[in-house]
């Protein structure tokens, strides 16, 4: 079977429409991961043993089980308990929760890099705990972790094809539907692969650039 250019051009717009959903899922999923991850990280530094171990256990479990099964679990079990939402929303939620387990580690590393003296100085100036965290600690902890978060973003982007297994019409799903209908899998699957490659490489280059900028600034 040979590569068929007219066919490839013909299906490209259909696949590109899937990219909108892919990017939507990535952006919203990452937003959720950033928020949840920060919450986990804060629970981990609070001096409460019960909170620490339950947060630890939850993130560990999330990180040690396949995203695919997590997706299946939520996709099939949520309707059973009366929650019926579009598949895309389920997918975004699961992606966000899954990656929050990784972003929490990134936040934690960033927070650990803030010297003890910064907390002490804030205490000496009589800031409240919340003020200290929001105005003193976070502004210092966040810039250095931007590249690591960027890497998580790319990783999540590359995980979005899994959403095709729960009927989300992102790029891979569209490609497979085209393949099933025409029995030509080579063109659609290769196109999807190349699109992923282009975006990942561009994003990696952007992260490398940001990383150098941040290093220079320090």
């Amino acid at each position: 079977m040979k590569w068929n250019w007219p066919f490839a051009w013909h299906i490209l717009p259909v696949i590109l429409r899937g990219m909108v959903i892919t990017i939507e899922a990535t952006v919203l999923g990452m937003l959720l991961a950033l928020i949840l991850g920060l919450i986990w990280a804060m629970l981990l530094i609070l001096p409460n043993r019960w909170l620490f171990w339950s947060t630890r256990g939850l993130t560990e479990f999330i990180r040690d089980t396949p995203l695919l099964i997590q997706l299946f679990f939520c996709y099939y079990v949520l309707p059973e308990i009366g929650i019926t939402v579009p598949a895309l929303l389920t997918g975004i939620t699961v992606l966000g929760i899954n990656y929050s387990a990784y972003t929490s580690e990134v936040y934690r590393a960033g927070l650990q890099n803030i010297p003890r003296g910064q907390w002490d100085a804030a205490r000496a100036l009589n800031f409240t705990a919340a003020q200290t965290f929001i105005r003193i600690i976070l502004p210092q902890a966040l810039p250095p972790i931007v590249p690591a978060m960027g890497n998580n973003l790319i990783a999540m982007f590359k995980d979005t094809p899994l959403l095709s297994t729960i009927t989300v019409m992102e790029m891979l799903n569209r490609a497979m539907i085209i393949g099933d209908k025409t029995f030509r899998y080579l063109e659609p699957l290769t196109i999807v692969g190349i699109l992923f490659l282009i975006i990942s490489l561009l994003a990696s280059a952007l992260i490398g650039f940001t990383q150098r900028r941040i290093l220079v600034r320090r």
């Binding site: 891979l172 497979m176 899998y185 080579l186 699957l189 999807v192 692969g193 992923f196 490659l197 490489l201």
Partner: peptide, 23 residues
Amino acid sequence: IELFRGTSALIQLFWAFYALPLV
């Protein structure tokens, strides 16, 4: 390295399973 890190494992798997046998 770039090819396998830049695309997703599922796409690689589907490609090998559905597209590659055609070639």
